[in-house]
């Protein structure tokens, strides 16, 4: 139901090559994976609105480049989101890599959306306190709130490792601000 067309009128044009290409680049689908998308309507300029139908597989980092305690930023699934991947140095729930200690999450606090950039505390494997209302999230335990006000774990990005490549394969939990991760993906297809 969420992916049903949301506007009645018909687009003036099919998705142009440019918007289709930008979408696919933004969605990280130029590599091994392919992001399926659906035209769900069109903007005022007649260009189509696109919605992703499933989480793409997207390379986000190299194992060999990760340093313990130093988050690396990436966008996923569509190109506008702010996420990070970090090597904790301690095994984590659904952690990947040889030590099962590599995890990835959204940077947006699930309380009221303040960005958590720069707040990682490697000593405790905790993201936070959020600068807005002090929520802390435990990265070993699926982004569970240690103390704080968020009504959802920090959305965790499911990962897969192949050789030296770390891929994002899905999102567990709703990004702050979205009604649907895929429908409301922060994708900019028009210049």
């Amino acid at each position: 139901m969420l992916n049903e067309p949301r506007r009645e009128h018909i687009c003036l044009s099919p998705p142009s090559e440019r918007s289709r290409r930008e979408f696919l680049i933004a969605a990280g689908a130029t590599g091994a994976g392919v992001a399926a998308f659906l035209i769900v309507g069109c903007g005022d300029d007649g260009e189509p609105d696109l919605v992703m139908l499933g989480y793409p597989r997207q390379r986000i980092a190299a194992l060999s480049e990760l340093r313990q305690g130093e988050p690396v930023d990436f966008a996923y699934p569509a190109g506008g989101e702010q996420n990070f991947v970090v090597k904790l140095g301690e095994a984590a729930q659904i952690g990947v890599g040889p030590e099962e200690d590599i995890v990835a999450f959204s940077y947006l606090c699930t309380h009221m959306g303040c960005p958590l950039i720069g707040q990682y505390k490697d000593e405790h494997k905790i993201m936070g306190p959020c600068p807005c209302h002090f929520t802390t999230f435990d990265l070993r335990h699926n982004g569970m709130v240690v103390l704080g006000q968020a009504t959802q774990n920090l959305p965790q990005i499911a990962l897969l490792v192949e050789g030296d490549d770390i891929y994002a394969t899905g999102v567990i939990g709703l990004f702050y601000g979205a009604g649907s991760n895929l429908r409301d993906a922060r994708v900019e297809v028009r210049s």
Partner: peptide, 12 residues
């Protein structure tokens, strides 16, 4: 802890 890499379906 999980002994292998995890995709979303395993997470669920």
């Amino acid at each position: 802890m999980s002994k292998r890499d995890t995709g979303r379906s395993e997470v669920l």
